[in-house]
Simulated scan of single mutants.
Amino acid sequence: MAGEQNTDILGSIDRLIDTEKQLRARIADGSADSDAARKELAALEVQLDQCWDLLRQRRARVEFGQDPGDARVRPAAEVEGYES
């Protein structure tokens, strides 16, 4: 079950990346309203970060013998505040 849910998260990541690529292309060729597209792009990037964070949480829980189902999507402010 954990693998299935991870696959779902990875599917969401793939869809968000596809949408991001399309939006970036529309911005580059001028077919998108620049300000609105940049806001949408920023929101997409936050969603991607949240998905990656959730996937990392789930994988870490499995590694340490915990239930990956207890992992939760963290608030954007928390995920965006991480240092690399």
Rank of each mutant, 00 (worst) to 15 (best):
I27T: 02
A32W: 03
L44S: 14
R26H: 07
M1A: 11
L10Y: 09
Q22E: 15
G81S: 12
Q22S: 11
D35E: 14
D8S: 07
Q66G: 01
E20R: 03
R74E: 13
S84L: 08
D70N: 13
L54D: 12
S34M: 05
D18V: 02
V73I: 12
R72Q: 13
E4C: 14
L48Y: 01
L44T: 08
R24W: 05
E4F: 15
S12T: 10
T19E: 11
A42P: 04
E63L: 12
K39E: 05
K39V: 07
C51P: 00
K21T: 01
D8R: 15
K39F: 10
E80M: 14
R58V: 12
R24F: 11
K39A: 05
E45Y: 13
L16M: 09
L48W: 02
Q47C: 06
A37F: 01
V62F: 00
E20S: 08
G11W: 13
A25W: 04
D35R: 03
Q66F: 13
R38M: 04
D33S: 07
K39T: 06
R15T: 00
Y82W: 09
D29P: 00
Q66R: 09
R24D: 03
L16H: 06
D70H: 12
L16G: 02
A36W: 06
A77S: 11
